[in-house]
Nucleic acid binder design. Sequence first.
DNA 1: CCGTATCCATTCCGATACTG
DNA 2: CAGTATCGGAATGGATACGG
Lengths: 153, 153
Amino acid sequence: MVRRTRFDDSDCPVARSVDAIGDWWSLLIVRDAFDGSRRFGEFQRSLGVAKNILAARLRALVDGGVLDVVPASDGSAYNEYVLTPKGRDLFNVIVALRQWGEAHFFTSGEPHSELVERGTGRPLRPLEVRSADGRPIGPDDTVVHKIDRSLPA
Amino acid sequence: MVRRTRFDDSDCPVARSVDAIGDWWSLLIVRDAFDGSRRFGEFQRSLGVAKNILAARLRALVDGGVLDVVPASDGSAYNEYVLTPKGRDLFNVIVALRQWGEAHFFTSGEPHSELVERGTGRPLRPLEVRSADGRPIGPDDTVVHKIDRSLPA
DNA sequence: CCGTATCCATTCCGATACTG
DNA sequence: CAGTATCGGAATGGATACGG
């Protein structure tokens, strides 16, 4: 499982996140986990991925602390894969991707799976980036502060 | 540029987004674009990626409507790559990944590049998923409404 | 400085067969 | 149903050389 280029020592959190998730399959596995999938077969049917690939990705996600393996709740001899707190923290990422997809990859009125509030059935509000004091801000209102690696002193 | 498995016809917006972005390199290119990079060489130095790979990714992002190619602003014969409105809409995705990375991949006090508000220099507020009427909600408060593809009628 | 073309090693994916 | 083992093909990514 060696990957061509590692970002896990980058000083950019985006790069480390990207590195940790590993590949797109993994993110769709996480999506399914949020959606309630727990069993090997559930993921496999949902994704249509080869079993060896799925097994490898699940292992990687477990190693990465995104999923936990627990004994099956139905008494069978198998495992279930559940999100860790760290994995659950990917909620914002999934929602952001979902909203971007909804906005740009579906023609108006084209049906698609939708994430709604459980109680009311109503769709979610679009995510908003906000300043420390709560004002909505956009890309142009922000700057990346790079750290200085020249002399760690 | 054929990819093994396509998700661009999935009814899940997350899958389509994932498919559209293509790979992790692309997302880091977008990150750099938000950070002000516009020139081929800037991206290359920042990412340390091979030039052929970078060229292919840039082309894919342009084809996908995430970046636009414009003549260089300095009068040179080359191109600059700027985010389209669709590309700028990835801001939430980048911020979500950034915050996830900050929370889980840096030891307390470990320096890292940081996204701050331009005016105040203060860090951003963590993203919050909210219901239609504005209450903060979490993964357990949501359900995915799958669409029924059985009989398109 | 930009970008393309080529070459090659790696590996990733998909299918299949197999075990409990 | 859950997961492992293996195999072959495909294609990516990295290095480098080249041309505008």
